[in-house]
């Protein structure tokens, strides 16, 4: 009798293990194993740039020691380019006293200067300084000074429009990683 009970228990145990292997009951163990097998190759490849990786991923590996730079959107990646496009505006100095051609030429020059300023502002930034003078709880004078200083090379004029004395110039600058860090 005892032998039959022990035999029955053994059969039940074997059946339970067999059901564990292919059903939901043992999922936790298999998940742990999967996590382990996934994490090992990542840890091994962290210091090696894989050829299948895109530029952003390679850059992330390159700057992995830098805690500030985390995503590819925050900086100009290696072997990539950024296009800076601006619209500069300029006005002819003469009110009907100069010929239309002269007005166009002068307004275009002013618009180009404005375009260069906008490109410099985008690439290098603007210094801003502000002063407010308050007297008897009232603002007497409010002053904001801004200035920009940069050297721009290889900016292209894409399109020029001249209408009602206003000249608009679309300018474009292609900036590569190598040029920016030179």
């Amino acid at each position: 009798m005892k032998k039959t009970i022990v035999g029955l228990l053994l059969v039940l145990n074997i059946g339970a293990f067999a059901s564990c292997a292919d059903k939901n009951g043992c999922q936790d163990e298999t998940v742990v194993e999967q996590v382990y097998t996934q994490s090992v190759p990542v840890a091994q490849n962290q210091c090696h740039v894989n050829e299948t990786m895109n530029v952003c991923e390679q850059e992330e590996l390159f700057v992995q020691d830098c805690p500030i730079v985390k995503t590819c959107d925050n900086y100009l990646a290696r072997n990539s380019e950024v296009k800076v496009s601006v619209f500069g505006q300029g006005v002819a100095p003469c009110d009907g006293t100069c010929s239309p051609a002269q007005a166009y030429a002068l307004a275009k020059r002013a618009a180009i200067a404005d375009g260069y300023r906008l490109i410099a502002e985008k690439i290098k930034g603007v210094y801003v300084e502000g002063d407010d003078v308050v007297k008897n709880m009232m603002i007497k004078r409010s002053t904001v000074r801004t200035w920009v200083s940069a050297t721009i090379r290889n900016a292209n004029i894409v399109e020029t429009t001249f209408k009602d004395g206003l000249c608009e110039v679309e300018m474009e600058l292609t900036l590569s990683h190598a040029q920016f860090y030179r």
Binding site: I112, A113, D114, Y116, R117, I119, A120, E121, R141, S142, T143, V144, R145, T146, W147, V148, S149, A150, T151, I152, R153, N154, A155, I157
Partner: peptide, 28 residues
């Protein structure tokens, strides 16, 4: 002048706004 501008221009811009009136000077 178009040729010169591709060589590299130094841009200097100064703006001052006093009581919401703006004056700007750009030197290339």
């Amino acid at each position: 002048i178009d040729f010169i501008q591709t060589l590299g221009m130094q841009v200097e811009n100064r703006e001052i706004t006093i009581n919401a009136r703006n004056k700007s000077t750009t030197i290339l």
